[in-house]
Amino acid sequence: MKTEHVEETLERIAREVESTPGGLLAFDGDGTLWSGDVGDDLFMTMTGHDAVREDVRPRLTAVATHYGLETEGSPSTLARRVFSAFQAGRIPEKDICEMATWVAAGWTLEELSAFARGVVESHGVAERVHPEVHRVLEWARAHDVPCYVVSASPLAVVEAAARVVGIPPEQVVASTPQSRDGVVWTDVVSPIPYGPGKVTCLRARTQRPLYAAFGDNVFDLELLGASRVPVAVRPKPRLMERAGSLPLLVQLHPVASR
C-alpha cells in the first residue's frame, strides 16, 4: 500500500471531478475523520450516568442470555456487561453497533440529540479531527464537492460530531434507531452502515458518483472498493492485512495536529 501526501490524493480526486461532475466524497467517522469512537463515547457516558432506561431491559436480557451472560443489575450495568463481552471477543462487533443504537430506547429523539451534542463537546471531538482529513474537507468545500459520513455509530452522536467538521445532518448516514411518536424503540433500521451495509445505506441516500472513500478499518473495505480513489486513513492492522484486495488503495500520510 503506497503512502501519499494529502496534496497528491487531492490531485487524483480533482481529476475524477473534472472527468465526471456531480460526485461526492464519503468518510467513515470513527478513526477516519476523528480519533477514537464517538459511539463508545455516547455509550460509556450514558451507562456511566446510569441513564439506560427500563424500556431496554427485556432486549438487553435477551442478548445477555443468548451469549451466556448474567442478567442481574440495572439496565446500565447489564449494557456494560454486554459491551465487556464484546471487548473480550465473545460478541460480534455488528451486534454491538446495533445495541449502542437501540440502548437509548425510551428517550425522545430530541433528548438523545441534545445528550449526544453534550457528549461530543465534553469529549473534545473538535480537537480529535485528523489534520490531513481536515485538509481534504477544506478542499471539498472550496470545490463544492459534497462530503458524506458513513458510520456504524449511532445517528445522534455522528450527526453531532459531523457538525464539528461542517458536514450537515442530511449528509450523515449512520446507525438509526427505530422510533415511534418521536421516542426511540428497541430496534434499528436495517441494514446498518457496517461492512457491505455502508455501500447499501449510502446508495439508498444518493446515487451520485463516489469519487473517493476514506476509511481506517476492515469493515470499511466495501465502501473503499466502491470508490474511484480508495484512501486508508491511519489504518488499523485488520485493514492493512486486507489491503491487497484493493490494488488501488493508498494510505494518506498522517499530519501533525494543527
Rank of each mutant, 00 (worst) to 15 (best):
1 M>A: 13
2 K>W: 00
2 K>S: 06
5 H>K: 02
6 V>F: 00
8 E>F: 02
9 T>D: 02
14 A>C: 04
14 A>M: 03
17 V>F: 00
18 E>I: 00
18 E>F: 01
21 P>Q: 00
23 G>S: 03
24 L>H: 08
25 L>Y: 05
27 F>P: 04
27 F>Q: 04
31 G>T: 13
33 L>E: 00
34 W>P: 05
39 G>E: 13
40 D>E: 11
40 D>T: 10
41 D>C: 06
44 M>C: 04
44 M>P: 01
45 T>Y: 04
46 M>I: 12
48 G>E: 02
48 G>N: 02
50 D>W: 11
51 A>E: 06
52 V>P: 12
54 E>C: 03
59 R>Y: 01
62 A>E: 15
63 V>N: 05
65 T>I: 12
66 H>Q: 13
68 G>S: 02
71 T>C: 10
71 T>F: 12
73 G>A: 10
76 S>T: 00
77 T>L: 08
81 R>E: 05
81 R>Q: 05
83 F>R: 08
87 Q>V: 06
91 I>C: 03
92 P>R: 03
95 D>E: 15
96 I>L: 09
102 W>G: 05
104 A>M: 03
105 A>M: 05
107 W>D: 00
107 W>A: 02
108 T>V: 11
109 L>K: 10
116 A>I: 15
119 V>F: 01
121 E>D: 15
122 S>A: 15
124 G>F: 14
125 V>K: 14
128 R>V: 02
129 V>L: 02
131 P>N: 09
134 H>R: 12
136 V>L: 13
136 V>H: 08
139 W>D: 08
140 A>E: 02
140 A>Y: 14
141 R>C: 04
143 H>P: 06
143 H>K: 10
144 D>M: 05
146 P>R: 09
148 Y>V: 06
149 V>F: 12
149 V>P: 07
150 V>I: 14
151 S>G: 10
152 A>H: 11
152 A>Y: 12
153 S>K: 05
156 A>E: 15
156 A>T: 02
160 A>Y: 07
164 V>S: 03
166 G>V: 09
166 G>Q: 10
167 I>Y: 08
168 P>T: 01
173 V>S: 08
175 S>G: 11
178 Q>V: 15
179 S>Q: 14
182 G>T: 03
183 V>G: 06
187 D>Q: 11
187 D>M: 05
187 D>F: 10
189 V>K: 04
191 P>M: 12
193 P>Q: 07
193 P>A: 06
197 G>D: 07
198 K>R: 13
199 V>H: 06
199 V>Y: 07
200 T>D: 10
203 R>Y: 15
205 R>M: 11
206 T>A: 09
208 R>W: 06
211 Y>Q: 05
212 A>D: 07
219 F>Q: 09
220 D>C: 08
221 L>N: 02
221 L>V: 15
224 L>A: 08
225 G>Q: 09
226 A>L: 01
229 V>Y: 03
230 P>F: 03
231 V>S: 00
234 R>T: 01
236 K>Y: 14
237 P>H: 14
238 R>T: 12
242 R>T: 13
245 S>L: 15
245 S>E: 15
247 P>R: 14
252 L>P: 08
253 H>W: 09
254 P>Y: 14
256 A>M: 11
258 R>N: 08
